[in-house]
Amino acid sequence: MQWSIETRNLRRTFRDRPVRRLFRRAVGTKVPDKVALESVNVTVKPGELFGLLGPNGAGKTTLIKILSTLLLPSAGEALVDGIDVAKDPDGVRRRVNMVSGGEHSGYGILTVRETIWMFSQFYGVPTKVAKKRADAMIERLNLTESADTKTSKLSTGMRQKMNIIRGFVSDPKILFLDEPTLGLDVGIAREVRAFVSEWIKEHPERTVLLTTHYMAEADSMCDRVAIIDQGRVLACDTPANLKRDLAPDCVYQIEVPLWTETISPLDQMPVVRSVAMEHRGDQGRTHLRVILEEEGGIASVTDRLAKRGARVLSMTRLEPSLEDAFLNLVGHGLSSGNGENGAR
């Protein structure tokens, strides 16, 4: 089968700026090259919405830049629709487009419609076709009211919607989306995600490679996800499989009356792998997030709580999340803090 995207032992390093390198060498410090991607192997099928999930600095953008012909690999190969990015960049360019989050492309003096039209011209789209496509997408993304506004007057959300249309208007076979919902409001992020998911379903040949550091985004949108950290792909599978294989599957949330002792009510129980306590003083309650070694352990947990006088107010079995899988695999969370913008 012909892969839409394929990398073979792809590696990319960066050198320091020449001046700094000279300076450091003069001072006598060794300057190793910065490794942004280390032997990356990924394959993406036609029709797939493939996610790259990883923290800042993981190498996501570097990979997208290589695939979109803005950067050369330091070693290894990258093929897009079977074409080597280093050998035939123009062949690749005819098939792809790219949108990044927080992009400020275009010219403030043009309107949204004009901007989309202008970029369509760089792909040789006849004006009539471009306008028709743009109008449809403008409507679909609820941008009609701003369509004749100068882009310098757009809000962040409106601008990103325009950027999205800008990338889709050339009707690329393969689309690269680099953190497309970065910094967007919940509502707009949701619209953008729905738009992308629908677009890819319209045609079996279409492929999307999306990078994100929003867990829920990768989980809800992507057919498959590669977890990437420090330039290495640590796992690659469907979100469901990643959760099944990597996340502990016995997670309970138990509510008890406010537990004031520092020691957990479930200490020294072999069946309990870990407990996280979260006190809700205002509600007079404590939430326990309990991960069990095995399914059957829950009975002994409730027994123990009863013995300690912690009456169970509510108990929920939690679905393992991609976040649990990520934590298990990478050993640390995503540095973005609570940056989730409401996927699902």
Partner: peptide, 26 residues
Amino acid sequence: RTNLTTNLRAIWGRAYVRVVGANREP
């Protein structure tokens, strides 16, 4: 041929910004 038309379209696309700019900001 398609290459040539694409490039001609690109020239006009980029030129358009200036032409419009001159009109909008006299």
